[in-house]
Simulated assay, not measured.
Amino acid sequence: MTFAQESTSEKIDAIFKDYTGWFVDAIFYEISFSETYKIPWVLIVLIGGALFFTIYFKFINITGFRMAIRVVRGQYEDIEKHGADTLYGDNTANEGENIIETMRDDGADGEVSHFQALTAALSATVGLGNIAGVAVALSIGGPGATFWMIVAGLLGMASKFAECTLGVKYRDVGEDGTVYGGPMYYLTKGLKSKGMGGFGKVLAVLFAIFVIGGSFGGGNMF
């Protein structure tokens, strides 16, 4: 029975390797800095980008931590429900700024609190990244991998901040109040504002395709 199971899994692995092996090899292609020191180029891009965002946003992953806790605790929900204009008498015009029209009312159907949004996001994160991913990293890199995962996680907070900020800035709001957003939208609209609309559309389509693959590979098959 064990032999049959191993044989089947090996066959499945071989099939996927034939079709996706070239892509995996390209993503994890290692750049040699010496005979014994090699780093996958994708790691340089991810950590380099996270370090850039950390410095650009003046260490928002550290300085903004108290603000994040206050937001999750709901200390700013009155502002979102009633608007800064109502609460503080701000006479600034809101046309085109997408402020009053999208103020969230926690009492309305379909709305969630900041804490509920956080727990929903964590439900899709804890497990694959924080448990299984750590176990794989330790098995490959040893105990020292723990330190670098902590560093990458802290720097990655700035990348997540940039991603969420872009998602809110370039989101679309339908006439019925439905919000449409995400990388597909800010890649298209953001790069279009920089004169690279065609390139943005290509990246948006690629992201949509890759995220489907990730949902099967990272979300299910793992």
Rank of each mutant, 00 (worst) to 15 (best):
T63D: 06
G89S: 10
G83E: 00
G64Y: 02
Y88K: 01
I60W: 02
Y76D: 11
A84C: 11
E80Q: 06
N61H: 15
G74I: 03
V72E: 01
I79V: 15
Y76G: 02
R73N: 11
G83T: 00
A50L: 05
A84V: 14
E80T: 06
F59C: 10
N94F: 12
G64E: 00
L51Y: 05
N91Q: 13
E77G: 04
G64P: 03
E80G: 09
V71N: 00
T86L: 11
V72W: 00
F52L: 13
R66S: 12
K81H: 10
I47V: 15
G74W: 03
Q75C: 06
T86H: 10
L87M: 14
R73H: 03
F52T: 13
A50W: 05
T63I: 03
F52S: 07
M67G: 10
I60L: 07
F52V: 13
T86V: 10
D85M: 12
A93H: 11
A84N: 11
K81Y: 04
I60Y: 04
N61R: 03
D90T: 13
I55P: 02
E80R: 00
A93I: 13
G64L: 09
A50R: 05
T54D: 02
M67N: 13
A68E: 03
F57M: 09
I79E: 14
G49Q: 08
Y76N: 05
T86P: 01
G83Q: 00
